[in-house]
Amino acid sequence: MIAKKLKAKIDKKRNLVLHLSDITPGEVEVIILQEERSITSYKNLLSKIPKHKVGKIQGTLSRKEIYLDAG
């Protein structure tokens, strides 16, 4: 297998726009590599943050408290 790294754009119709002047016609394998992006907007984040009225929180919420043995 011959590998060639190329950059290409995806248009609004989600077509891959790529002109390969130096590759002969025929089938090729395409691997899409995409940078990871933020999975949500800030507005979306705010709307999804759980909202509760749990009253006073006892203690400092250190892990020693979280894992305190029951009883």
């Binding site: 509760h52 009225k53 749990v54 009253g55 006073k56 929180i57 006892q58 203690g59 919420l61 892990r63 408290e65 979280i66 305190l68």
Partner: peptide
Amino acid sequence: EYAVVMTNSSLLQKP
């Protein structure tokens, strides 16, 4: 741990 804290009546008044 979030689930532990938020359901714990020793840590929250209203779990």
